[in-house]
Amino acid sequence: MSTAKEFWRWHEYRHTMPNIAPVSDDIITAGVDVGSVGSKAAVMVNGQAYSWGITRTGSNSPESAKKALDLALKDTALSTRDLRYIVGTGYGRVNVPMANKAITEIACHARGANYIWGSSVRTVLDVGGQDIKAIKIDATGRVVSFLMNDKCAAGTGRGMEVFADLLQVPIEEIGAMSLKVEAEPEPVSCTCVAFAKTEAIGLLRKGWSKEKVLAAYTRAMAVRMANLINRVGLEPALVITGGQSKNVGIVSRIETLLGVKCLPTPNWRDGGLDPMVAGAFGAALLAKALYEKTQQI
């Protein structure tokens, strides 16, 4: 039996922070971020990240939400019964059955970015599976203004998956590979997933290397994202959240285009706060605030 290698498949994992032992008085909350491509859940103890899990979103949002939350709780001392308040977010936020409240991913990524990188963050670029959002925030992590791309998936994580498959390069290596070019090629003329694929096939036939094709596509995506940031008004410090924050090809090109460095991405492979989970972290923090509000009468 042979199975085709799924180049688009990214790392699904979970993590528990060491040295946190929840006790019964602790305020334990969770955020569940059901995106179009990935579902993320984070559990917090008194507003501190305790555990999280990332999994692929299936065709059914409620099931994906449950799967992500179960993954985050797996092998921990906690179960869903310990969660005092849950906030659902992301594209499937209205379909998170265990959530007490739904909040948009825009507010959650803002709050999550403030949690991961601290109060100096002013601009957040969230590149999800299906859309891009540029968010301006204040020192407390509140949204000041935001912009979102229109309805197509151009220049988003889903587009990268299509390219991984087309070029037969594992998705997690795409970013580094796109940087292995001597000179940056012209960006592809169109970031529309469907058309860019056609254009890429044409370039490969012309004899372009995979690296060069990836560079051209990644560049085009980065240009789109940089434009969105410029339209909302870039104010440092800048950070990138969502799945594409892990794509070094995107991050370094945005830095070049904008002329600023992003705050460094935490080493998530080694248990650092994962920027792909920013929305779920933000949701769990907002859950804590909302829970506390219910307690004060």
């Binding site: 948009t104 949204v143 979102m148």
Partner: peptide, 28 residues
């Protein structure tokens, strides 16, 4: 908030996120 759309119902999900995020911003 600049809200661009078309004569279509297909973008309702995305518009919902945009509108709700703006309402959250106003509430905040």
């Amino acid at each position: 908030y600049y809200l661009d759309t078309e004569y279509t119902r297909e973008d309702v999900g995305q518009l919902k996120t945009r509108v709700e995020a703006f309402m959250e911003l106003l509430n905040a």
